[in-house]
Amino acid sequence: MPAFAYTIELLNSGHNRVDFRCGTEVLDRYLREQAGQDLRRYVATPFVLHDLDTNQIAGYYTLAATSIQVEDLPEALRARLPRYPLVPATLLGRFAVDERFQGQGLGAFLLVDVLWRILMSEIATMAVVVDAKNEQARAFYQHHGFTMFPGQPQRLYLPMASIARQFS
């Protein structure tokens, strides 16, 4: 839990995006320049962890629809799925915590919000998929139960069945 008063909400024009710095320029630039457009165009849905006292964005993530080619999954999981070529999934596209808030466990806190939000959605999704930007990100996701796609070391997934068990 954050040590400050907060909300997690859809990005809106009242959020201070200019001061956000996570240490990865592409993620900072995305929030400043692209996230609002993606929301308006229904390309991705950005959510922000908003510090109500300082009016700062402590972290953010984006969600979007995607699909997984069933043949890309391990055989043990594939055997339990319908014989469709593709299955629906949710893409956790961007994920970042501002440098001023790092080291407080907010990444794990935000990830719990991601997984809960997807689990509570009324849209079918077989798994959450992420494309880790670097080794540190991959280790973070693996620590939280994500598994690498065979032959794709930076692409990971977490089945909804596992997520449902975590919250039961």
Rank of each mutant, 00 (worst) to 15 (best):
L27N: 09
K133F: 03
L86E: 11
V18M: 12
L10N: 10
M126V: 04
P150E: 12
E135R: 06
I8Q: 11
M160L: 10
S162T: 09
A96V: 08
F167A: 11
P85H: 00
G93L: 05
Q152A: 09
E9P: 00
M1R: 10
V70S: 01
Y6A: 12
V48E: 14
Y84A: 15
D19H: 03
F167C: 11
L27G: 02
S162N: 13
A44K: 07
Y6I: 15
Y42A: 14
G23N: 13
Q136Y: 07
R21F: 09
H50V: 13
R29G: 08
E33S: 11
H15R: 14
P46C: 05
S162V: 05
V48A: 06
E75S: 04
M120D: 14
H143G: 15
V18E: 15
I163C: 01
R21H: 14
P150A: 05
T45A: 07
Q37N: 11
V87P: 04
A108C: 06
R41N: 10
P46M: 08
P46S: 09
L49S: 06
M1C: 02
M120Q: 15
Q34T: 15
I118S: 05
M148C: 08
A161N: 10
G105L: 04
E122P: 00
G23H: 07
F149N: 11
L81W: 01
L92K: 00
L73D: 05
E9F: 03
F4T: 15
M160R: 06
R83N: 09
L31M: 12
A139F: 04
A96S: 09
G145M: 09
F95C: 13
L52D: 14
F95P: 03
G23R: 09
R21I: 13
E33R: 10
W116H: 08
T147N: 06
Q37G: 03
Q34Y: 00
R155M: 07
P74E: 14
V43Y: 03
A132P: 02
L119K: 07
M160D: 02
Y60M: 11
L63Q: 04
F47K: 06
P82R: 05
R83E: 14
V112M: 13
E75H: 04
T62G: 01
N134A: 08
R100H: 13
A96D: 14
V48C: 10
V43M: 09
P85R: 05
G105D: 15
R29K: 14
F20G: 06
I123G: 04
G107T: 11
I163H: 00
M148P: 03
T147H: 03
I123E: 07
Y141A: 08
V112K: 12
D38W: 03
V48S: 06
Q37F: 01
F146R: 08
G105Q: 07
Q56K: 12
V112R: 14
A139S: 12
L10S: 07
R80Q: 13
G151V: 01
L91Q: 07
A96P: 06
V112F: 01
F109N: 14
L52F: 01
L115W: 00
G36N: 12
A5C: 08
D53Q: 10
M148D: 14
D113R: 02
R40M: 13
M126R: 03
D72R: 02
G105H: 03
I68M: 02
R40G: 09
L119S: 05
V130Q: 06
D38I: 04
A35S: 10
A76N: 13
L81S: 05
R80E: 15
R165A: 12
Q142S: 09
